[in-house]
Nucleic acid binder design. Structure first.
Lengths: 216, 216
DNA sequence: ACACTTCATGACACTCGATGACACCAATTC
DNA sequence: GAATTGGTGTCATCGAGTGTCATGAAGTGT
């Protein structure tokens, strides 16, 4: 049993806030991806990344456990934005309508970041290390998909059927995203409407219309 | 136009057959996974793996480009066995019946290998490098799924609907496999019938009964 | 039987990603 | 200002992975 101590003010320098730390990681991530896109993964050294950001190499390794994982914050940021969009999906709307409507309201945090993330996804076709990170980041969103689906079907998120539906939907989203990334990398012009249309089609095909429509 | 040369017998020592090379890779894979399970990935060095197999470190790196990828042959072997089972699936049988019947006929190549593969899959929850390899191996089976489904539905394997069904079925299989792997890793006793039952349920949930039943 | 060719493996040196240990500086409390 | 705590830089070192050459095994031609 511990007596509720009067919380003394901490003595020394305060730890970096998670927010600040995340910003720092994101900044490193931007520089790393810039170099990876320009020179490729193998040709980019940790030293270059550190120098580009303006920190020592040792500090770089304190923020990231490997140079490949430097791409993670950028990928996560885009994935989180997508997930947040899904969380705002009202039951009475179809996915297509919601995505179109939502795109008008929510502005992207940093316009170049999404493009950079997609470039990494395109590179992940030939870079196994990138592929590992992308797949893991994407997989984290599957839990959210399960929540969204559970809500729309009126069932529990941990039910096998719901999880399978989430995995299915996730696969459709992943394939669509990768197609988009590749098209972008190859210079094919694609509009926002195209993406929404392809996404809708994939979701419908994957779930037989169980997910994606408005819940009546 | 090339004149059909008399195919002279090749001069020196013949290259190692793919079969032999595959055997060698599999042997290394077994030893690597044994060490990974015992000590973890980080604590296992390439030198240890090489020594355990009885080859030089240099040779190890000729067979595998990274120590993580040493697990690939074991995973592939299990995946291939599963795919082969699916290929033997007669149209007039349900998946459940076929799996039960097939388990009696076909004996596993190496009994410990499947268990080792499942252990790697369980470890892939916390080891991103393993996760990427497992997902890639699994993804390769999706093409076969498409063929099997196309046959049962009487459609072409490259039709969008068939491919999406294959992806869906693949997601169901993956989740079931991972659940099984985790249960095994945690020491929960699971019978073959349990696995078949869960698999059947997952397939039914994923495909809404379109796949899995006997074709009438 | 002997020379010649080709491939697999081992041995050595080397690069570079990554970590541990320690010192230094900045921020904050008493 | 002294004491304390956290972030960062420097140096030494480990270990993964590669380039290169020497050696031996396995084959062919004469």
């Amino acid at each position: 049993m511990t007596v509720p101590e009067a919380t003394r003010a901490p003595r020394g320098r305060r730890p970096m806030s998670d927010r600040r730390r995340g910003q720092q990681r994101l900044e490193i991530s931007r520089e790393a991806v810039r170099l990876f896109r320009a020179q490729g993964l193998a040709a980019t050294s940790g030293e270059q990344i550190a120098e580009g950001v303006g920190v020592s190499v040792r500090t770089l390794w304190r923020y990231f456990r490997s140079k490949e994982s430097c791409v993670e914050p950028l990928l996560s940021q885009s994935a989180d934005a997508f997930v947040a969009m899904l969380r705002r999906w009202p039951r009475e709307r179809s996915l297509e309508d919601h995505m179109v409507a939502d795109a008008r309201v929510s502005a992207p945090a940093s316009p170049g970041d999404d493009e950079a993330a997609l470039a990494v996804i395109a590179m992940s076709r030939t870079e196994p290390a990138f592929r590992a990170i992308w797949l893991v980041v994407h997989e984290r969103t599957e839990a959210v998909l399960a929540e969204v689906i559970a809500d729309r079907l009126g069932r529990a998120p941990d039910e096998l059927a719901v999880r399978v539906q989430a995995a299915t939907l996730g696969a459709a989203l992943r394939i669509t995203t990768e197609d988009y990334a590749v098209a972008l990398a190859e210079g094919v012009a694609i509009t926002g409407e195209d993406v929404v249309a392809r996404l809708t089609e994939a979701v419908r095909a994957a779930t037989h219309g169980v997910i994606g429509e408005a819940v009546t």
